[in-house]
Design a protein around this nucleic acid. Sequence first.
DNA 1: CTGTTAGCGCCTTCAA
DNA 2: TTGAAGGCGCTAACAG
Lengths: 344, 344
Amino acid sequence: MEKKVRKRKKATMADVAAAVGVSKTTVSRYLHGDYEFMSEETRKKIQTVIEEFNYRPNRAAQNLKADRSNCIGFTIADIGNPFSSLLIKGVQAECRKRGCQLLIADADNSLVQEKKNIESFFNEQVDGVIINSVGNNRDYIQEISQSEENKPIVLLDRTYQPIFCDSVVSNNEAVSIEMMQELEKQGWEYIVFLTESVEGISTRATRKETVERFLSDNHKLDGQIIVLGGEKKLDIMAKLAQIISVHPRTCFFANNDEVLRRIISYLYHMQQEIGRDVGVCAFADEKWAKYSGPGITCIEQHPFQMGESAADLLFQRIEKKEKREFIYREIKADICRYDSTHLK
Amino acid sequence: MEKKVRKRKKATMADVAAAVGVSKTTVSRYLHGDYEFMSEETRKKIQTVIEEFNYRPNRAAQNLKADRSNCIGFTIADIGNPFSSLLIKGVQAECRKRGCQLLIADADNSLVQEKKNIESFFNEQVDGVIINSVGNNRDYIQEISQSEENKPIVLLDRTYQPIFCDSVVSNNEAVSIEMMQELEKQGWEYIVFLTESVEGISTRATRKETVERFLSDNHKLDGQIIVLGGEKKLDIMAKLAQIISVHPRTCFFANNDEVLRRIISYLYHMQQEIGRDVGVCAFADEKWAKYSGPGITCIEQHPFQMGESAADLLFQRIEKKEKREFIYREIKADICRYDSTHLK
DNA sequence: CTGTTAGCGCCTTCAA
DNA sequence: TTGAAGGCGCTAACAG
C-alpha cells in the first residue's frame, strides 16, 4: 500500500502505456510522430491519456539515451548592454526553431568568470557554446575548443585571430572607413576617436586601428585617438576644450554607447552644441542615439542577426559531424545619419 | 574490434572505475566527497584518473536519478533593458551559489511568447520558474502555479494581486510618494506624470495611481497624467508646450527609461532647458540618467537585489517542501538627486 | 501494427 | 573499506 502513495509523482511513459493498454514502445512512437504503422484508434487513445495525465516526456531520460542535452550555452561579456540583449534575442530565435534550450551566463566583464561560465557549460554537457568574450581569453578558448570532446564553439562579436573556430562579427573595418569618408565629405576637418582600452578586444582594436590608419593615409583629414582610462572628468573636458579651440570643425567619434554617453555629457557641461559647434558620431544603438540631443549619427550593427547567424553556425556543427573550414562571417553594419554630423 | 572504436565517446564512470581497478560505487562516493571510509590511496588514484580522462559526471544521468534538473527558468518581459539585465545578474548570482543552471527566455513583450516560454520550461522539467511578466497574464500563471506538479513559481517586479505565489517588487507606492513630496519641497508646482499604457502591468499602474492620488489629496501641488500611445511627436510636443506656457514650474515625471528618453528629446527640440525652465525626474537607471543633460534625478531601483531575492525565494520553495504563506517582498528604491529637479 | 528487451550513466541499498 | 545489483524513464533494434 505504501507503494501506491509514491509522492504524487509525474506520470511516466509506463503510466500512459498502462492506461491505454499498450506498450511503451507504442507511446514512444506516438511521441515522435511515427504514426505510419499505428491504428487510428490507438493514436487517439494515447492522445487522450497524455492530455488527461498532462504527461510530458522526461528530458533527462531522453538526453541520457540520445547523449545530447539539447542545450547550448552562451556566455556574454556584459549583459547590461542593449547590444548584448539583441545578441541574445537572435541566438534565442534560432534556438526556438530547433527546439533547443539556451543556457545564459553573464561574465560581468571578468575573465575569470568567463572561464567559469564555459567550464560550467561543459559540466552541464551542453551541445555547444557561443562565446561573446570579455577579451584576452584566446589561449583558454583555443585550448578547450580542441580538448573538450570537440564540442563546437562559436565566437560572437569579439573574435581572436587567426581564427580557430567559427566566428561572427560586424564588418568593423569597412564600416569605419565608410564613416570616416562620410565625415570628410560632410566637411569635418579634425576627428577625435574616443575609446576605452582596446587591449585584447578585437572589435575595439579593429576600429581604432582602422581610424588610425585612415588618418595617417589621408592628408586632408587630421585627427587623433584618445584612450579613456581613469582620468578625472574635468581633465578630459579640459583636454577636449583645448582640442576644439585649436581645431575648428572637430567631430568626435565614440567607439561604443558608453563612450558616447560620456562625450555627450562632457559637451553639455562644456556648453558645446552638438551639430553646430562640434560633430558627434558613434558605434551605438540607433534607438537610443536618435533620441539624444539633435539625434546622433551612429553605426548601427545588427546584433540580432549576428546572434542568429552564430547560433546557426553552431547548430550546423552540432548536426553535421564532417569537419569543414572554420567560417569567419561578417555582418554588415549601417550608418544612420542624424543632425549631429550635419555641418551647417 | 568494432566495439573498441566506439566513437571516441566521453569517459564514463565505469571507465574511471575500471582504470583505477575499483567499482563504480567507490568512484561515485569519491565524487560526492564521501571520503570517510575510503583509503587514502584509492582516493588519490581516483583523482588522478579523473583528471587524466578529463572525466565529468553525466548530468542527464544524475538528473534522471535525482528527479530534478538543477535548472530553473527565467522568462523576461523584455530583455533589451538595463533593468532586466540586472535582474538577470541577480538571479544568476544566486544560481551560482547553488550550482544551478539558468534557462533564460525573452518574451519580447508578447503575451503569447511568455506562455510559450513557461510551457517550454516545464517541458524541460525545470525545478522552478521566475517570471517577469509582460502583464495581463494573471489567469494563465495562476492556473499553472496550481496545476503544474506544484513546481514553485516566483513573480519578479511585475506581480498580480491578490498574490497566489511568492513575489518580489520595488516599493513603488512609497517611493513615488517620497518623490512627489520632494518635488513639492523643491518648489515645483505642477507635475506631469508621463507613462506608457499601464493596462495589466502592476508596476506602472501602481505608480500612476499613487501619483494620481497624491495630486488629488494635495492642495498645493497640481498636475496631470499623460498616457503616451501612438501620437505624433509634434502633437505631444505641442501639448507639452501648452502645459508649460500655462503652468510655471512644471516638472515632468517619467514612468520609465524609455519615456524619459522621449521627454528629454522633446524638451531638446522645444528648446526648454532642463533644470531651469522645467524639471525632469524618472523611474530610471541611474548610470544612464546621470549622464543626461545636467543629470536627471531618478528613482533607482535595485534590480540586482530583486533578482537575488526572487531566486532565493524560489530555492527555498524548491528545497523545503513544507507549504508556507506566500511571501510578498518589497525592495526599497532610492532617489538619486541631480540638477534636473533643482529649481533655481 | 505492436511488443520485448537491452541498455544509456549514475545512485543507493544491502551485503561483504 | 569496498562491491554487486537494481532501477530512474526513455529509445531503438529486433521479433513477432
